[in-house]
Design a protein around this nucleic acid. Structure first.
Lengths: 192, 192
DNA sequence: TAAAAAAGAATGAACGTTCATAAATTAGAT
DNA sequence: ATCTAATTTATGAACGTTCATTCTTTTTTA
């Protein structure tokens, strides 16, 4: 079935084109016409794979979020201590954001756009379940403060997005030293 | 000169209309036609006050950022200790964001839009100079970690935006207890 | 009555989406 | 294998809107 493969390739090309375009002009800057041109298909062809622009963006969101989570938990090992597990996840996330600039920036943009509905966003969050479970465990063990997961996320994960943003604008270097300081700040903010 | 006052009122109405519209539909959702309608003027009239939509949004950005900074430093007193000063600023900011939901959400959106250029953004940042000065002083006194202001901001200020976002979506309450925990996390992340 | 301010209608461009057709592929019959 | 008919897949043009902005005319002010 070479035909099936061609379809998959086209779908992938469309997602990739969207990712690229959103990256240099925002979601509104990624018009269906431009997406089609970059993916080398007709605008009409997009609608053979996606119901609408919103569907296209949502599917891309879930795809990218999934790959982000996969990277975050790539070497996840339930045998290890809470501290080690959190540190691994944190640096995996940082590494992903550093090596997948477009994907990271896209996910950031998705946090604010009305293009992605609450349901899809919820679906995306579920990829991070192991992290939330870890926080629960860490609280039980009195390693983490007894605060809501929203606070945990806001202070230990979310700041990475800001730093990435600054780095991409050429305002703040993210070398190894800065990364270590950043992790320390994240850890200090949630550790008991 | 009642005429001058009328002009000022019209300008204010246009800024206010933009703020409202951006709040329920993003910057792209705030079309010049809608802004004009809400401000009860003709679309053409907008261009008597602003060169373009980008100019309108930029001026609104600077206006709001300025009022945010004014609130943040309202009871600022150089005689007080670094700790007290930081705490005051932090809670002032939190209070502003809680009582000026539209303004806070608008500023959040401005962080990511390409509509506001780097120069304007820089201009907006300068309103926060007293905070940056405080950080320098705090570092000299070994109260704060010796890390870049970007890290300081990312971990002690930026998380508020996330929590506001969650609160506005009805996902995370921001009561007094949560606020105190949040400040503690901010403080722990940057204190030496 | 002259000048300034504001209006509404109009402009061309761009948007997401659809439609009627054309190309490509498949399936069946020879 | 080869031809043909049916079916899928893809297309470019076109649709109706909406956009930011401008032009000409009308209203208001001095």
């Amino acid at each position: 079935m070479a035909q099936l493969q061609k379809s998959i390739d086209k779908r992938t090309a469309l997602l990739k084109a969207t990712l690229t375009l959103v990256n240099n002009g925002g979601i509104q800057g990624a018009s269906m016409a431009k997406i089609a041109k970059i993916a080398a298909v007709s605008p009409a062809t997009i609608y053979l794979f996606f119901q609408s622009k919103q569907d296209l963006v949502s599917q891309l969101y879930l795809t990218v979020k999934s790959s982000f989570a996969e990277a975050a938990f790539s070497d996840y090992n339930l045998q290890e201590s809470v501290e080690v597990r959190f540190k691994k996840i944190w640096f995996n996330m940082a590494h992903y954001k550093l090596t997948h600039r477009e994907e990271a920036s896209f996910l950031s943009q998705c946090d604010n756009t009305p293009m992605i509905d609450e349901l899809t966003r919820q679906e995306g969050l579920e990829f991070l379940t192991p992290l939330f479970d870890l926080w629960v465990k860490g609280k039980e063990d009195c390693i983490f403060k007894d605060i809501s997961p929203y606070l945990m996320y806001a202070y230990s994960i979310y700041p990475m997005a800001f730093l990435m943003n600054m780095k991409n604008r050429g305002l703040c270097p993210l070398d190894e030293k800065t990364l270590q300081e950043s992790f320390q700040a994240a850890w200090d903010s949630i550790k008991v």
